[in-house]
Each structure stands twice: as structure tokens, then as C-alpha cells.
Design a protein around this nucleic acid. Structure first.
Lengths: 226, 226
DNA sequence: ACAAATGTTAATGCTTTGTTAAACCAAATT
DNA sequence: AATTTGGTTTAACAAAGCATTAACATTTGT
């Protein structure tokens, strides 16, 4: 399954070159021309990796990255920067698990970086599997949902759905996306099964009225924390 | 008692970020800027863990590690490497009980590694593989499981499974991981064999109701001590 | 008001796990 | 070389644990 990459780059020429190259390598690339558009698109799809140019009109790469992170999404982000930028800022992000690449760079270099990230994601290294959800704490690794009032161990499927929701907190996940990610496929019965799981999770989460899985009729679900 | 960590990293920015983060987590970190300085410092204090950057001026991480090994065979060493290095060399070290982490990495990942190491040191007896388990004491080197009420010598396989569980106490170990680690492979019958061993170990452990091997349906097992 | 989508609960049935015993195998012993 | 012995794997069957399906209620959009 080819990795989906969100590329946000304001220079049309460069953007096109990168997209084209990556596409040839078998990646599925979505190109946006500025930070705002980038955010909109990010909000609607699941990506395996983001590549953000740092200097962009409307919304720069760092701001965009911060907004993405607010979503609690764990996608790795690779920054493209014109030259040795403010090292501090870049290092900060690096410590956060992201990386950067300095223009001009060769496609080889870019592949190398992407490779590291994707290997890491699949190679179970990137497992920050703890999520705060209002009064809850969900440990995706041990399937434990804990709350001041008690602790519940979820089943595998429950945990998988929960994790997906947590990774995409405050954002509408399409039914299809969830089914694809957790069930691997999408038919009528799986859809109903998903509903059953949502129902179960809601039951577990009802201790804290501020945490809610809301339905978007005909679209999907969103995990909200007030 | 906070663990003492020796960090040798030539990049000042990265070194600082790591040190700062670890310090916040309650570790006592000593930062050195190159291999030579690192060795001097190592020579004067006892550390619970070393983190060495591989590529450094004056003395690289591997060389430093070899010198350290000559002195003190047991400190775990975590290598930090710029990119997919010569895998062979890294794997060699890994077999020696050390580990490595590839840049860029998140602090979460780093904690996870450190955690594994320090947990391994657990019963403050890293040399003879001793683990405390409630009322039990398991000596992984001599396969002896002792309890106030008596002592039992485990067989090879029993001990291997037991040890793996002990090293990963309070964590869910996937069936696949156990099979890979103990049997080296993973087929249906090995899986059943694992179940048989779990059953045996449970029998041995039932003297202390606070020690329990719990099953995670469809996933694996976890050793819990209440 | 109607059809489609979602919520909820319960039953059904498949898969995984628990346990015991027999088969198997290799090393040690006679 | 045969036999005993200790340990691991296979087999067989019982018991749990879960996801799915079904069935029915409720909500939403048109």
C-alpha cells in the first residue's frame, strides 16, 4: 500500500518537481500551494507523512505544523527550509520527532529522509501511544483506558478504533477511513460492526461528559474534548 | 534514586535538547562534547546508562564503547546514529546487549529505550538476571524460581519465557514477539506450545495471587504484579 | 412522512486460549 | 545397543472471549 504524502510548497515549479518525482517512486502525493490550503486538505484526509516548506505566504510551515500537532496527530513532518534557518527552532522540532532538509537538496536526500520516517512509523518505533482525553488517559499499547473512577482494558478492536480516534482528535474521520484502517476493508456489515464499537466506546467514555464521539451523518465520526 | 546517564554528543544544540529533556524527566545527565572527554568522565564516575553519538570528532562512539567495555562490562550503551548506518555493525552491538536509535528521533522514543534498559537493570542485579516478582525471586541465570514456600528449577524453555516476561513486566508482549524471541519463528504449533508453557508458569506462580500472567485475547500476554 | 443512516442490545458462532495427556526426541545411563 | 529420563511438541477437547450478525429503536435529512 503506497504511502500518502501531503506536500505543501508555494513555489509551483519546485512543488511540481517534487510531487512528480515522489509519484514516480510510488507515493501518493497531494500538493497544496500554501499553508491555509494545506490545513484544509490535511483536515480531510489521512496522511502518512507531511512535507512543509517553511517560508510560505498566508501560513508558514511552522504555524501549519503547530496546528497539525494540536490535532494530536502523530504524522511525521519534514520541513523544507531555504537555508540554515534559525537552528533553534528547527532543533526544537527535531526533538519533537520531526526533521528538516535544506534547499537545495537532491531527490536522493529527500528519499532518504522519507525512508527513515516511514520505516520508523511501520517499524513500531513511533509509538507514543498515550493519549489524554479530558479526565481519561488512554494507553494504546496496553489497551488501558483509565479514569479517576477506575480502569478498563479494551479489546484489540476497541483499542484500534480508539487509537485511531485519538490520533485524529477534533477531526472528522470518514467511516470509510476507519474501516479501511481497522478492518482493512469496507462492506455493509463491517460498517454496522463499526457502529457497534462506537457504541461500546461511548459507554466507556460516558464518565466524562466532556469527551464525546459525535456522529456526522453520512460522513463519519469525530472525537471531541470540550 | 535517579539514574545517572552519560551523554556524549558533539552537536551542542542536540546535546542540550536531550540533556534538558532527560533532566526534566528526573535523570541525572552529564553531557560531554566528544569521545575523549566522554571517556575521562566515564572513568571517574559510575553511570547507569550511556548514550553515545556514533559520529563524533576525536573519538567516535564505537571506539568509545569498546574502551568502556574494557573497563566496565555491564553498563548498557545506547548509540545515536545519523542515519541507517552500517546495519551490521549496529546489529553487532545490539547482540552485545546494547541498542541504537536513529536520528531524528522523538523524546518519546528515547525514553522508551532508556526505560527498557533501566527496567532490565531492574532488580539491581543486571549481571545475574535476577527479578523480583511479588514474593518470588527469579534467577534467570540458574533458572531458579524461589518462594518462601520452596524453590523450583525451571527448564530451559520455561526459563526463557519467564525471563522475557520478567524483562517486560507490566507490558503486553505480543505472541509473535515471544515466539520470535524464544522459538525464533512463529507457526501454529509453536503458538500452541507457548500456551502450554504459559500454563505451566502459571501453575508455578500461583503461590502468590498477586503475580499473574494475563492474556490479551488475540494479542499476547502480560506479566502483572499487583 | 419516508427512506436512509445510526444507536443499542442481545444471540450466535467462530477463534483463541487453557489444560491435560500422549507422542516424540535426544541425551544420558546401563 | 537398548533403556531410561527429562523436556518439548502435538493432539484433543473444554472453556472463554470477542467480533459479527441480526433485530429493533431512534434520529436525520429530504
Amino acid at each position: 500500500m503506497s504511502a500518502k504524502i501531503l506536500l505543501v510548497e508555494d513555489d509551483p515549479a519546485l512543488g511540481y518537481v517534487i510531487k512528480d518525482n515522489l509519484a514516480h517512486k510510488g507515493f501518493e502525493v497531494t500538493l497544496c500551494k500554501d499553508g491555509e490550503q494545506g490545513y484544509e486538505v490535511f483536515d480531510q484526509q489521512l496522511f502518512d507523512l507531511c512535507i512543509f516548506d517553511v517560508m510560505m505566504p498566508k501560513k508558514d510551515g511552522f504555524t501549519l505544523a503547530q496546528e497539525v500537532r494540536k490535532r494530536n496527530s502523530q504524522v511525521p513532518i519534514l520541513f523544507v527550509t531555504a537555508k540554515a534557518m534559525i537552528e533553534d527552532k528547527l532543533e526544537g522540532f527535531r526533538a519533537g520527532g520531526d526533521d528538516y532538509i535544506v534547499k537545495p537538496f537532491s531527490m536522493e536526500e529527500l528519499y532518504a529522509r522519507i525512508d527513515v520516517f516511514l520505516r520508523r512509523t511501520n517499524g513500531h518505533l513511533r509509538e507514543n501511544n498515550s493519549f489524554e482525553l479530558g479526565e481519561f488517559l488512554f494507553d494504546g499499547k496496553n489497551f488501558k483506558l483509565s479514569h479517576p473512577s477506575g480502569e478498563k482494558t479494551l479489546t484489540q478492536k476497541e483499542a484500534e478504533v480508539m487509537k485511531l480516534l485519538c490520533c485524529n482528535k477534533e477531526r472528522v474521520l470518514k467511516r470509510e477511513e476507519i474501516l479501511k484502517a481497522v478492518w482493512g476493508d469496507d462492506d455493509y456489515f463491517m460498517g454496522r460492526s463499526l457502529d457497534v464499537f462506537i457504541s461500546k466506546l461511548r459507554k466507556y467514555l460516558k464518565e466524562d461528559p466532556n469527551v464525546e464521539i459525535v456522529n456526522y451523518h453520512g460522513v463519519g465520526f469525530k472525537l471531541e474534548v470540550k
